[in-house]
Nucleic acid binder design. Structure first.
Length: 578
RNA sequence: CGGGAUGUGGCGCAGUUUGGUAGCGCGCUGCGUUCGGGACGCAGAGGCCGCAGGUUCAAAUCCUGUCAUCCCGACCA
């Protein structure tokens, strides 16, 4: 029979003070609430309570994977370098790949992801189109030597990930499984109690709309997204927001003296116009060291990911290179540019008739420079990072901006790995063809942090019932009392017997300590047994999320608590286990 | 990788300027009083002052090196 857990036995060293190195709520509270402990930068241990939560998230993920027909496997974290040489990523992945050698000096890495490994498994024994499609997943530790690990579990160097991979013989089959996975990922977010948005994201080299990121909305998130009520949502890295440059009313091009005005902010202030009236110029260099001049609306930032899709090997030029190209820092414009410099302007500037730009000589700008007369732009592209107020590409309404935590991503890989690693199957006509692949990742430990980011208050964490470290904590306020403690024990054991995950705070602590710990750790329901109440035959049930306390006759407390727990599960779409 | 900062009992910090052999709060142990929102009193335990060199009669303190951790940046002319 199920039993309850005693706080006196549980290893849950809560902290009274905030850890100094924790900047965000999840890091702070997970540490204080005895869920995690830091081992090294970006490396954490999970204590018993954290471990319970982690396992519950994993089980939700596992359940959703099984539901879409993916099969659980377990691959090694330690991977031979040969596989990575085959795919080309030994050289491409960069210093984020944790590399090591064995005693024979053979190269290995600790897997940051498992495309190579899973492809090498499948290519040997998955031979016929008749056996396709196949989908497998694992829940496992991943290693990435991040430039700068930070924010506790949000960006670690070692973290827990669910990664799934699918193999197909047709685009239709891949698309179908990809759609199933995307639905499953939405379910995972809902069941974990996360407010999220599926967003368009960078699809890397492959192009096309073949990836979706699932973002948990949170100010602490490292990613930025723009979204619209019409349902559009996109990572600002790729968002096709439409900027609205305002331009400058002038009949003719006019050269004006602007001494010392070398930034957009200063220029806008000098002319007493909005920054959106100006045009910002940037100088870049491609992989052949050829110079490029880029023009974007003054109130927008350029987006290197987008530019790199237009200009191969793009990087910004430094001051010395600027001078070498004959350009004047702070006063660059499209009129009278030196020979041999290729110009590209952001598409939003196409409709802008009169530009405010640098005059290509020190301390002078041009206002009212006329596109098509005073200068020409031959190439147009989307170069800017979307921002709040830009127009939705789907419906034209102003976009709003939010921050998010990327908790998961689905991706159509196509033949990228199967081709590089010669992983083929035999099709109906007897020909060998590379697999079409998809990969699908969930940051499990990151999801745990994201949940805390969304569910906390000044007293601590507030776990959704689906992922809580225990559904009910029973708190006898005086352990030594001959009526209170036995009453609490009875409640706890009856709850446990009915399948409710129950903790009994049997510590000989003062009421304040127990309340503070219960709120900090964030059990969804607290059953409080005090001397006065028990004598009168009642106990209290406190809802951690709302703070509401209700008084319930002692002989009805168990039934009431079970009712609340079941309701809470139902609200998240999770079925309670018997 | 560049800039900034910090390493002192389990945790959070002071002490470093002006070298003299380590202190405070929390926690921990014991006893007593308390007991519905992080109690109080008394008595205790616990520290190669990140590590390695150097200067000095003497180093937590000064110098050099090194390691670790945190913050900012690593595109926005």
């Amino acid at each position: 029979m199920e039993s309850y857990t005693c706080m006196s036995v549980l290893y849950a060293p809560t902290l009274k003070e905030d850890p100094v190195d924790a900047e965000i709520a999840s890091h702070r509270l997970l540490t204080r609430g005895a869920m995690i402990r830091k081992v090294a930068a970006g490396v954490y241990s999970f204590l018993p309570l954290g471990s319970i939560v982690l396992r519950k998230i994993e089980d939700i993920v596992r359940d959703e994977m099984n539901a879409v027909g993916s099969q659980e496997i377990l691959m090694p974290a330690l991977q031979p370098s040969e596989l990575w040489h085959e795919s080309g990523r030994w050289d491409d992945y960069g210093p984020e790949l944790m590399r090591l050698s064995d005693r024979h000096d053979r190269g290995f890495c600790l897997g940051p992801t498992h495309e190579e490994l899973v492809t090498s498994i499948m290519r040997n024994e998955l031979r016929s189109y008749r056996e396709l499609p196949k989908s497998v997943f694992q829940i496992q530790v991943k290693f990435r030597d991040e430039i700068r690990p930070r924010f506790g579990l949000l960006r670690g160097r070692e973290f827990i990930m669910k990664d799934a991979y699918s193999f197909h013989s047709s685009q239709e089959s891949l698309q179908e499984h990809y759609d199933d996975m995307a639905r499953a990922y939405g379910n995972i977010c809902v069941r974990c109690g996360l407010e999220y948005r599926p967003v368009e994201a960078d699809s890397g080299q492959i192009g096309g709309k073949v990836t979706i990121e699932f973002m948990a909305l949170a100010d602490a998130g490292e990613a930025e997204l723009v979204y619209c009520d019409c349902g559009f949502a996109s990572n600002t890295e790729v968002a096709q927001g439409k900027a609205c440059p305002t331009g400058y009313l002038a009949d003719h091009q006019e050269k004006i003296h602007t001494p010392g005005v070398s930034t957009i902010a200063a220029l806008a202030a000098f002319l007493n116009v909005d920054e959106s009236a100006t045009v910002k110029a940037l100088v870049g260099i491609d992989e052949n060291e050829s110079p490029y001049l880029l023009f974007v609306p003054g109130d927008h930032e350029v987006n290197e990911i987008k530019i790199s899709h237009v200009v191969k090997g793009f990087r910004l030029a430094d001051d010395a290179e600027l001078t070498r190209f004959g350009l004047v820092k702070g006063y660059i414009g499209p009129v009278g540019i030196p020979e041999g410099i290729h110009c590209i302007a952001d598409e939003s500037l196409k409709s802008l008739e009169r530009w405010v730009v640098g005059a290509n000589e020190p301390d002078y700008h041009l206002v009212g420079a006329r596109l098509g007369e005073d200068f020409e732009i031959l190439e147009w592209a989307d170069l800017i990072t979307a921002q709040s107020g830009d127009r939705c590409p789907d419906c034209g309404a102003p976009l709003r901006i939010a921050r998010g935590i990327e908790v998961s991503q689905v991706f159509q890989l196509g033949e990228k790995y199967s081709r590089a690693m010669n992983a083929t199957y035999t099709d109906e006509s007897g020909e060998d063809r590379p697999f079409l692949m998809g990969c699908y990742g969930v940051g499990v430990s990151r999801t745990m942090a994201a949940i805390v980011e969304q569910h906390n208050d000044e007293n601590g964490m507030i776990w959704p019932i689906s992922v809580c470290p225990g559904e009910v904590i029973v708190i006898p306020l005086s352990v030594g009392d001959a009526t209170v403690f036995p009453a609490a024990e009875t409640i706890a054991s009856e709850l446990a017997a009915r399948g409710i995950q129950t903790v009994l705070d049997d510590r000989d602590e003062r009421a304040g300590v127990k309340f503070a710990d219960a709120d900090l750790i964030g059990w969804p329901y607290q059953i409080i047994c005090g001397k006065r109440g028990v004598t009168e035959g009642v106990a209290e049930i406190k809802d951690r999320a709302t703070g509401e306390k209700i008084s319930v006759p002692i002989d009805e407390v168990v039934a009431k608590a079970i009712e609340l727990v079941i309701e809470a599960h139902a609200a998240l779409g999770n079925l309670i286990e018997e």
